[in-house]
Write a protein that binds this DNA or RNA. Structure first.
Lengths: 340, 340
DNA sequence: CTGTTAGCGCTTTCAG
DNA sequence: CTGAAAGCGCTAACAG
């Protein structure tokens, strides 16, 4: 029986340790603060024993209050159910731990109201810095926060905000996609993404796509938005196949899922007369149909880079805001064979 | 230009607000503490304006230090890359926000060392309670913490620890799986899960499976562990098909992924001569082959329930530790047709 | 209705 | 090498 009960002792404090060890609070503080060398060997040993025995854990809140640093990093993600976000979180989390920081994670659920709410909460907990995957709808709050806190953006830029940004080299990714498709002989490319809502990465991918298609004389390209009518719209586009072999390019994991489902409903197989290449590698890319060709983002590295970027700022760097673009890695699978 | 700079003003404090508004700190404290009714209307209005204008945000750390409550909940997950965990996190997170709590999330990466580390960190940040998806390898730290903190376990029980547990009704889930498979005419069932490492839910599923098979005269069952040799072991088992139509039962998402990959490598299709039913619904269950029949866990509800359970404890409930078991929901797809 | 006063647990001068 | 004392930002009696 170990039921948690009202008998719960209040936490052991530094004073108790001090008393038990027969020293002053200051001495204990020095010990836990790592100034162990400045203590008499005997004292240090006694302290070690007492702390161990009492099960003392320094109260980070109190330390933070006094020293002005909490060793807490806040992270805001737009959608924790998106595998991309999770992978980035994982990268950030790992880097945090390695540097002695803890992560306070907030999920905005793609909701502006929640974004605002969480931003306030994070601030009130005195996080030392912020890693933000924002919606970008209302820069106000963010701009404001940025004046008080080091911050780095992930994947999504914010207009008017001069901040470090780490993400994918979207232009390159789209270029790789089109190169591959063209090489494979596809001439009619339909790109599909979530509706444009101001998210910079979506914009950039669409831009890059349009520009790149324009540069390719023999290729035709169109852009579709994910919505309730996707299956119909898609079918319509696919019917209009007077320009050569067709292929789909999905701009992220969400689009890939939606498109794959739509194709399934429509009863269209992958790879035979219709190519597909996806931005974002997913667990199941290799499993569905002949396998889906993907452009994998180095998500872990993106996460780690975001943290390191933040760390530099925390250490006082005043350098110009940087933009860290990572290259996507092409993984060729059966969904983009040479069309027959 | 909004570059964060060393000019960063220190945060606005309650004293500054007090001075600016010409009242005492106590009054400001009352205002932000919600005792707004106990203030003169005029004072309240002045305060509102000043706070707004100064951009004042109460320091939760300081409040926590004083009041002994931080409005922080700690959550420990074994593997954030597992979609099950993420879905539960989402449920917890939502519930937290609705009740004014923030979530500090820690991922142990299935590593004992990291579990210990994070547990200490969470404690040092004075989280009010803990939601734990533990490895269960070393109850020591956890047992210890449980004496100081309300805690609820998710999915995995811990021997010797009398704590609330919320998870899946494993017996029922396995029963549903076998019922379905048997109804469909399968007679030789191979169950596959991650290696038994003390994780209670894995144990329970294996136990339930063995017991349930025993009760079914006409059915034969075996259990396999995920490891490097899975493809071979599996092939071997499948060759031994003298007991009637065969089907696979995967015990969780990880197993489903591994098995699906192994089958693909082996060139075996789903549904024709080999059935498959999976515990855990995944994004791609409907997409691969004829679709994978799944037993979906109500993950969001599990997460929400975990938080609510914790909340009761936080409010002082001394009730006997409960076990909340949710039923899995069967989603029939093409991987379990009536065998030919 | 509002101000005064003491701390919460810890760190940090400043003296020994 | 160690202790005393002040104070981080806030709340909670207790007076008025």
């Amino acid at each position: 029986m170990t039921t948690q009960s009202s008998l719960t002792r209040p936490r052991v404090t530094i004073s108790e340790v001090a008393k038990a060890a027969g020293v002053s609070k200051a001495t204990v503080s020095r010990y836990i603060g790592g100034d162990r060398q400045l203590l008499a060997e005997a004292t240090a040993q006694r302290l070690e024993a007492v702390i161990q025995q009492l099960g003392y854990r320094p109260n980070q809140m109190a330390r933070g209050l006094k020293r002005g640093q909490t060793r807490l990093i806040g992270m805001l993600v737009a959608d924790i159910l998106n595998p991309y976000s999770v992978a980035v979180i994982h990268g950030v989390e790992t880097a945090c731990r390695q540097h002695g920081y803890s992560l306070v994670l907030c999920n905005t659920n793609r909701d502006d109201e929640q974004e605002r709410h969480h931003l306030q909460a994070l601030q009130s907990y005195n996080v030392e810095g912020l890693i933000v995957n924002t919606l970008g709808h209302q820069p106000g709050e963010l701009l404001d926060l940025h004046r008080r806190l080091p911050m780095v953006l992930v994947d999504r830029q914010l207009a008017d905000l001069q901040v470090d940004l780490v993400g994918l080299d979207n232009t390159d990714a789209v270029e790789q996609a089109l190169d591959h498709l063209q090489t494979q002989g596809y001439r009619d490319i339909i790109a599909i993404g979530e509706p444009l809502d101001g998210t910079s990465s979506r914009h950039e991918r669409v831009q890059a796509f349009t520009a790149s298609v324009q540069r390719r004389a023999s290729v035709r390209g169109r852009v579709l938005s994910l919505d309730a009518h996707l299956p119909q719209t898609l079918e319509q586009c696919l019917a209009n196949d007077d320009h050569g072999p067709q292929a789909l390019l999905t701009f992220n994991g969400v689009a890939t899922l939606a498109v794959t489902r739509a194709l399934q409903v429509a009863g269209r197989g992958l790879g035979d007369d219709l190519g597909l290449i996806a931005i974002d590698e997913l667990d199941w890319c290799s499993l569905v149909g002949p396998g889906i060709t993907a452009l994998a983002q180095p998500t872990e590295r993106i996460g780690a880079a975001a943290f390191e970027c933040l760390l530099e700022r925390l250490r006082g760097s005043e350098a110009q805001p940087r933009r860290l673009d990572f290259k996507a890695q092409l993984i060729v699978r059966g969904s983009t064979p040479l069309p027959t």
